[in-house]
Design a protein around this nucleic acid. Structure first.
Lengths: 213, 213
DNA sequence: CCGCATCCAAGCGGATACTG
DNA sequence: CAGTATCCGCTTGGATGCGG
């Protein structure tokens, strides 16, 4: 038996042998947002060494979690259907870890893909279903996301665009989602800057995206 | 910043920094079944080096995931309330990994705690609620488990005891739960040996515990 | 025994440089 | 751009020691 195997016949150990290595689930996290090129993955995970990224991509392919997109001229990595089934795992991990997040440290960055997953984790479908369809242009640090909520459905895409509310903020968006910081106070203290649209739509945003700390 | 940190302000990375190290989630898995002593954890994870187990226990304590049980003469490790909130993560991982489990290899063991978590993962509460309360004495290899299903509630304890159905089997229980092997065939081929009680209760067992492969 | 601590070898993870 | 190659340090794995 390979020295690094857990040696148990159990779903949890099997899962950890496929995606339990360092960085593996973060690659999956980003691919849950969409197919990505090698360089895009590297950009979304600035601290991963290139040889490790290359090794993980090979391992995840061998495990049937990801594949190189077929009939594409360039190399693009995407999740297989089985890999996509990791979404509940990643979201559950994200929800759990969210509660342990303290104040952000200077060197902790927010990438477009990680922010997208955070929003998916915090999205309260039930609440949203009872609210009017709304589009938010969220500028979180250097990251621009277009967040469209339509009934119980959520779509997050990169870039700017038409929105009912456009706002700019930083890592403190965590405090908004956790409920630690009320929307009005966030605006009053300048933590969130409303760029376009009625400021009270930030209340709706905070109701739609919420994860208790 | 510590070299091994991911450097992102994100719930998933935070979670992986707390419980993403090798062996950590397996310790959590076993503690989800109940408080355990150091030696019990070591017995349930035969391939973990003792220094690694000791290191993980310290890290998990520092992370607020586990604690040494208070007002206990002996040292017992248990999950904190926050640690118990990892149950959805472990069950989701187990459900995902279950589908990738091939045929068992000789050296892959089934421990009482891993089997308990597998049963919790595969438990179909909805189905069970519509069935009469049933107790199963399941002997999986050398592991004896008493499985009590009462409406939507499931309880799994170690050891033998009074049961409506007692059966013995091995790692092939996986094929029973996945639906790969019909209960009747399992009995006919000797994969499952009914020790006490009506054999058709094995159908009920297979309906109650099911995870598609 | 139980709950670790120590020591050592093997190999993986990480930074950097390099190539097609 | 999409990876390889190389080197080093540290973690892991495994054996052993050791105090309570």
């Amino acid at each position: 038996m390979a020295a690094r195997e857990y040696g148990q016949y159990c779903g949890v150990t099997q899962a950890l042998e496929l995606v339990g290595e360092r960085w593996a689930l973060l690659i999956v996290r980003d691919l849950l947002v969409g197919p990505r090129r090698y360089g895009e993955l590297a950009a979304g995970l600035p601290r991963i060494p290139s040889n490790i990224l290359a090794a993980r991509l090979k391992e995840l392919q061998a495990a049937g979690v990801i594949r190189r997109a077929p009939r594409s001229r360039i190399v693009i990595y995407e999740l297989t259907p089985y890999g996509r089934e990791l979404e509940p795992v990643v979201l559950a991990l994200g929800a759990w870890g969210f509660k342990a997040m303290g104040d952000p440290r200077e060197e902790q960055i927010i990438t477009p893909d990680s922010m997208t997953i955070t929003l998916r984790t915090a999205f309260r479908s039930q609440v949203a279903a009872a609210l009017p369809a709304t589009a938010y242009a969220a500028h979180v640090g250097p990251t621009d996301l277009l967040v469209r909520v339509d009934g119980p459905a959520l779509s997050v895409t990169r870039g700017d665009g038409p929105a009912d509310l456009a706002f700019a903020t930083g890592q403190d968006i965590h405090r908004l989602i956790s409920g630690d910081l009320a929307p009005e106070r966030a605006i009053a203290t300048g933590v969130v800057e409303v760029l376009r649209g009625p400021a009270d739509l930030l209340d709706r945003f905070a109701s739609t995206f919420h994860l208790a700390a």
